[in-house]
């Protein structure tokens, strides 16, 4: 998602989003660890999104066991402060304006099939903004999930060499490599 554009373009919709937030927003219990970016509500939304985007199966772990939402929280905490607001607004918009997905209840109230239909409505929306938001959520969940080494064995992905493979002459670890390019400090033979 382009956090750099979402804020402004979503402005009108967020006015609509503010009403259900103010009137009917349920209280969300904080997870048993410190959140760095998400509110407990946002954490719940991302947890549910991850459950549907990367649902396990094929021998792959389920996203809850990997803590995908918690890891996403850590990633988004690295954002430049000037860009933080956009993703917060996306999550509010996504959950609390169900009419955009053609549903009556919020995303978090949906069962599994309802949640998939909700996501699909955003994915295939005629509104570019919603497709944009969906892709931001999809990419976040997928990238965090498959960055976790616990998903790699089933992919037959061996993972990094660093710390695993000695590439020769003691180069098992970074930091002691030779300068192999003879030209870096040479005078160019013009």
């Amino acid at each position: 998602m382009s956090r750099r554009a979402f804020l402004v373009r979503a402005g009108g919709l967020l006015v609509a989003a503010s009403l259900p937030v103010g009137c009917a927003g349920p209280a969300f219990r904080a997870p048993g660890f410190q959140l760095r970016y998400f509110s407990p509500f946002e954490y719940a939304v991302v947890t549910r999104v991850a459950d549907r985007i990367v649902p396990g199966g094929y021998g792959l772990p389920d996203p809850g066991s990997l803590g995908v939402a918690r890891q996403a929280d850590g990633v988004l905490a690295l954002l430049d402060p000037s860009l933080e607001a956009d993703f917060h607004q996306l999550l509010t918009l996504f959950d609390r304006v169900p009419i955009l997905a053609g549903r009556l209840g919020s995303f978090l109230t949906q069962g599994p099939r309802g949640a998939d239909a909700y996501l699909a409505a955003w994915e295939n929306s005629p509104f570019e903004l919603l497709r944009h938001g969906f892709q931001g959520l999809r990419r976040l969940a997928a990238a965090v999930y498959y960055a976790d080494p616990r998903t790699w064995a089933i992919l037959h992905y061996a993972g990094p060499w660093v710390g695993r493979i000695d590439v020769g002459y003691g180069l098992a670890n970074q930091g002691n490599g030779p300068q192999v390019n003879p030209n870096v400090y040479s005078r160019f033979p013009a």
Partner: peptide, 10 residues
């Protein structure tokens, strides 16, 4: 942007 920057239209 943590490798998530996009064009304005996403």
């Amino acid at each position: 942007d943590v490798a998530s920057q996009t064009t304005a239209d996403g």
